[in-house]
Simulated assay, not measured.
Amino acid sequence: MSDPTEQGYFTEENSAGVVISRNANAKDPRLSEVMAALIKHMHGFVKEVEPTQDEWLQAIMFLTETGHKSDDWRQEFILLSDVLGVSMLVDAINNRKPTGASESTVLGPFHVPDAPERPMGSDICLDGKGDKMLVKGRILDTEGNPVARAKIDVWQTNDDGFYDVQQKGIQPDFNFRGVFRTGEDGAYWFWGARPRSYPIPDDGPVGKLLGALGRHPYRPAHVHYIIDAEGMETLVTHIFDPDDAYIHSDAVFGVKQSLMAEFTLVEDADRIAQEGVDAPFYEVIHDFVLAPA
């Protein structure tokens, strides 16, 4: 007696349907749905491209090498997802915002969950490198009200283009990292250094793929944020320097128009003295609007 889920013998024409039918007894309906879509699109891709046996083996070896490059400190598959735009697409689908709320972007691989909480206005630049920068703004809700006790987790590279976790023993621990909490007025401010563009890790199979595609591995200059507040959706986002050379060609497609900030050079002597610094500095003013949970 034939299996009622069996849809006949495998042929080039009916390949996807036959494979999908074999999974009819899957215990998890969502897994069945996901696998059916995956099989349908994969078989459609193969029929469209018609790879040779050697080309298909090349693809298998690329994925094998990608797995070998991944370890506790580096996830090459996430990098692959990033450069193909899939990470940003998943982020967009899972972070649809109401009108007026700040947009999200990718978390990135260099967030550290236990960064120290610092007094508002602290300097997160611990190595003294770079052009001094004051970042400030307000955390608001979609009605324009200030959000008190919002937790703001920020991090960025140093002036050499590296995160502290990439240079253990070279940079101070928690260099360019800090957690701040807003007061009743929702205001935040901290000191850092003007960020620089930097390359994603490009010494592995994903970097080779970018090179073969004629693409660069650079991300435009940015500062990372995670903003949490009671009753609000958590916002994972960046602010970007619109004057950066790579602002229109981010290797991981993370740039959004609304996340571009203005980096203004302050050279007025009275203003410099007012802020308690001894040289010109960059000022960035950027508000964030949180969606209700």
Results as ranks from 00 to 15, higher is better:
1 M>N: 02
1 M>K: 04
1 M>I: 07
1 M>F: 05
5 T>A: 11
7 Q>F: 08
8 G>Y: 09
10 F>H: 06
14 N>I: 11
18 V>R: 14
23 N>C: 14
26 A>G: 09
32 S>T: 04
32 S>C: 01
33 E>P: 00
36 A>M: 08
38 L>D: 13
41 H>L: 14
44 G>D: 01
45 F>Q: 07
50 E>D: 10
51 P>F: 07
56 W>H: 10
64 T>G: 05
66 T>Q: 12
67 G>D: 15
70 S>R: 00
71 D>I: 08
80 L>K: 01
81 S>I: 05
83 V>S: 02
89 L>N: 11
90 V>N: 03
90 V>D: 05
92 A>L: 11
95 N>V: 06
95 N>K: 03
97 K>E: 15
98 P>L: 14
99 T>M: 04
100 G>T: 11
105 T>H: 09
105 T>D: 11
114 D>C: 04
116 P>C: 01
117 E>L: 08
119 P>F: 05
133 M>Y: 02
134 L>A: 08
135 V>M: 08
136 K>T: 04
136 K>E: 09
138 R>Q: 13
139 I>H: 03
140 L>D: 09
143 E>T: 15
144 G>N: 04
145 N>F: 08
145 N>K: 15
148 A>N: 00
148 A>H: 00
149 R>A: 12
151 K>V: 10
153 D>V: 12
155 W>V: 02
157 T>K: 06
157 T>L: 06
158 N>A: 01
159 D>G: 03
160 D>V: 03
160 D>C: 00
163 Y>M: 14
165 V>P: 01
167 Q>G: 05
167 Q>H: 13
170 I>K: 14
174 F>W: 15
174 F>D: 10
182 T>A: 03
182 T>N: 03
194 R>S: 03
196 R>Y: 05
199 P>Q: 00
204 G>S: 03
206 V>K: 08
211 G>V: 13
211 G>W: 10
215 R>Y: 07
216 H>I: 13
218 Y>E: 10
220 P>C: 13
222 H>L: 06
223 V>D: 01
231 G>L: 11
233 E>D: 15
241 D>M: 15
242 P>M: 12
253 F>E: 12
258 S>N: 06
265 L>A: 06
265 L>W: 09
266 V>Q: 01
267 E>F: 13
268 D>H: 03
272 I>L: 13
274 Q>K: 13
275 E>H: 14
279 A>W: 10
280 P>C: 11
281 F>D: 04
281 F>L: 08
282 Y>F: 11
292 P>S: 12
293 A>G: 09
